[in-house]
Amino acid sequence: MMKPFGGNILFLDRSDINTDEIIPAKYLTEVTKQALAPYLLEDLKLDGFDPKGEALKTAQVIVTRENFGCGSSREHAPWALEVNGINLVIAQGFARIFRQNMFNCGMMALELPAADIDALFALSSQGTVSCDLDLPQRTLAVAVDGKPAQTLSFHIEPFDEALVCAGGWVYYANTHY
């Protein structure tokens, strides 16, 4: 049931990226997740970012700053990430509803301290950065151009881990309540 967590990192060097930027409201009339795929991050305001560029196309992981996913409750935001092959977002902080939506979908919203986030951003200029998350070991192995660069440890709330392992909240709730 558990999704794989890791791969090439897309760096979004900005705080407060909201769910309207992740997937604009005009696409919320879609009733399938797959239909959202072309529109991910279409309205993101970030210098140098191209929503149609290679960096997004080849990414499986996003690394960003504070308050990622603020604003609307739309779960279309995690879905738009998921259908683009991105199951792991690493940030200094998340908006509550977005974070919960990620775990509810069996995806991973990983919070790291500012120093770790800074370290990851520092690597971004040195080549193609990728990572591999080991949930039981609580480690994130980071590589630059395929060569090991750093290993970070992380914390996850036990309930959030249970949701990830169950593949989401619907399965968990339906077996428990």
Binding site: S73, I97, Q100, W169
Partner: peptide, 9 residues
Amino acid sequence: GVGTTDLEV
């Protein structure tokens, strides 16, 4: 406010 999965449950 919650997302669609919380709503579903």
